[in-house]
Design a protein around this nucleic acid. Sequence first.
DNA 1: GGATAAACGGTACGCTGTACGGAAACGATG
DNA 2: CATCGTTTCCGTACAGCGTACCGTTTATCC
Lengths: 241, 241
Amino acid sequence: MQTVRLLWRHRIPVVPPRGRPARMGVDQVVASGIEVADRVGNLGFGMRDVARHAGVPVMTLYSSVDAREQLLELMIDQCRAEMAHAPQRGTWRSRLQTVAADNRALLEAHPWLADVESERAILGPGTLVKYERELGAVASLNLSDPDKDAALSLVIDFVRASVRAIRHTALEQSVETAAEWWAREGELLAGLGVAEEFPLASRIGTATGQAYNAASDPERAFAFGLSVILDGIQARVAGGS
Amino acid sequence: MQTVRLLWRHRIPVVPPRGRPARMGVDQVVASGIEVADRVGNLGFGMRDVARHAGVPVMTLYSSVDAREQLLELMIDQCRAEMAHAPQRGTWRSRLQTVAADNRALLEAHPWLADVESERAILGPGTLVKYERELGAVASLNLSDPDKDAALSLVIDFVRASVRAIRHTALEQSVETAAEWWAREGELLAGLGVAEEFPLASRIGTATGQAYNAASDPERAFAFGLSVILDGIQARVAGGS
DNA sequence: GGATAAACGGTACGCTGTACGGAAACGATG
DNA sequence: CATCGTTTCCGTACAGCGTACCGTTTATCC
């Protein structure tokens, strides 16, 4: 089955079914996939995991879905269709902040979404309704159409990178604190004179700096980056044509 | 062997070797890995590919390297050590533009680098020298240390997202033009009234818009996004404390 | 010339996604 | 009611992956 037909399955008129009835519909497979992926937390889940969680043999999944990649696309679109979103009100700035917050919540609810790259490539109802709504936030901006799109994806790509950074540091801290790491491997670096050779990196660095007890606060970096982007758009709108 | 020791292998005093000499050093394995990855273009290369290219059996690689993941880290650091970089001169703005251009060239020379997420996690000489140099571009900014780091990674993350977008559209166009796609699958969407239901997405959208012959120019989006970020930093520096 | 130490590299294991095909279960038709 | 066409079910199997294991080979040190 073509991916597009599956994506829009709920809007395509149903043909009276023939042959043996399926014990699982596409919806159930997609739902199982999302639950498993949420539990695993990244894209490292397998078809056998999805099948086990759904209570069916592996190959039964392939009655509903052509391939893992296709299932992934359906999962992505489903998550976007179900995502919570605050009402779009106020200035373009507050609207874009809403977009950022909504996207961040989405990526935190389904961390594996932050690991997929294709933002627009999926032409499903969930993706399109999300995209249309988010374009509404930049519609009033004094920009060309391509630039509106660029401004929007600037925000969204930034959110994704930030969520990944936040998750990454959280994961790292849970495995081993920076102090522990430094106690184990750091003296080697210290013996090589790294601190003297890279003074800025040692003082500021997210990784090296942690070792020297610099506060690495991805949360603060998120706020900073977002406001920088919004300020930049503001400057571009005010100073532009 | 710990990864840190391998990363800094050129600066660690050599111990007189004992036992059977290796027919391939770490450097050669890393070099082979980079060449293979460059040829493949993404992270989908295997240890057997690297071995074949190096002219040795697979398991011989494991004499120099613990695991594929470790090899990948060594490859990343090596690429950063070898990367070309223009001299850092002029205002912070032009310096950051240099940083962006250098990073873009790096990611285009080694496309698979755009697919790895860990930007700072690798504490190797290549990564550190790159990071130190790039911090120099934001050092003069009137920002706190964490904000300097945030500003820098804002630029770098943006470059990575842009390079991925550019590569993605280029790859897609080479497989099938938007018109071909639309002729095959688009009428289904059109029949569902997608264009009327999502007017903004249809007009502006990178994917849908392509189908309707909207010009999608990731190159322009890159220039736009970078200048927005730089304007934002400028506003933040001028208006801040 | 042992002893020791390291790399060599063939074999094999567990894991992945999924192609294949006989069996089974339905609606439609004679 | 029997048969046929259609579809799903799902066990088996295969190619690919990273790499653990380990006997063999080749070096240096005493």
